[in-house]
Each structure stands twice: as C-alpha cells, then as structure tokens.
C-alpha cells in the first residue's frame, strides 16, 4: 500500500472520529432535551460516513474485489437515525419535557385528543 493512500485513509478516520466526538459533545453542551437531539442525529452521520468510506477504500485496495457493503450501513443509518430522533421527540412532547422555548401546546392537545379517541374505540 502506498503512502498517499495511507495518508488519505488516516485523514478520513481522524475526520470521522472528530465528527462523531463533536456530535456526542453536543449532548453535554447543548441546553435542553430537544436541541440535544440534534447533535447525535446530524453531527454523527458524516463521522460514521467518513469511517465507512475509509473502510470501503481499505478493503477494496487490500483484498481482491471491491467492498461496497459499507454503503448499506450508511443507507440504514440515514433511515434509522431520523426515526429514533423523531420518536424521542414525540415521546418528550407527550411527557411535556421542559424546553427553552414554549412547547407547542396546541399540537400536543390535539394529539392527546386523538389518542383518547383512539382508545375509546376499543
């Protein structure tokens, strides 16, 4: 393996680690539950992306044949990260977790009403 490739891989891995770290740091630095959700969902996609690109390049150049199943991890990550964030936010709104800004009460009321209707059906 030549030096240039090794440098490229190292840069990708360090960048990936850095982005993942900053995303996690957001959990400590941001000030309420809802803004904290932003760090891990977005700050980390690029971090994991960089690591996976590095992995794909490494295994493609080392073994015979190219290695592409890292792409799948990225795809699944893009699908699942927003869903877990969405559900966490939804649950927090339902429990009325404190926020820096006023909660959208109207939306919550409506949802609760719908919930009651749903349950009165059974």
């Amino acid at each position: 393996m030549n030096t240039l490739l090794e440098i490229l891989l190292s840069v990708l891995i360090v960048a990936g680690a850095l982005f993942t770290f900053i995303g996690s740091l957001g959990l400590a630095r941001l000030r309420d539950f809802y803004t904290r959700l932003h760090g891990p969902t977005k700050g980390t996609t690029l971090g994991v992306g960089c690591l996976l690109i590095a992995s794909a390049i490494f295994f493609s150049t080392r073994d015979e044949g190219i290695s592409l199943h890292e792409g799948l991890i990225t795809l699944f990550l893009f699908i699942t990260a927003p869903i877990s964030a969405h559900l966490l936010a939804k649950a927090a709104l339902h429990l009325k977790v404190e926020s820096l800004v006023p909660l959208p009460d109207e939306a919550i009321e409506r949802k609760n009403k719908q919930h009651q209707q749903y349950h009165s059906l059974d």
Partner: peptide
C-alpha cells in the same frame, strides 16, 4: 454536519431554538 458541529462548538446560549 458542519453547521451542527459549529453550533455545538460555538456558544450554545446564543442558539434560538423554536418549534
């Protein structure tokens, strides 16, 4: 990713979150 990283590293008290 870059924007969120910058906001985390910047001053979180300056953010204006909203629903």
């Amino acid at each position: 990713n870059f924007i969120v990283a910058a906001r985390i590293l910047g001053n979180p008290a300056k953010l204006r979150p909203a629903f």
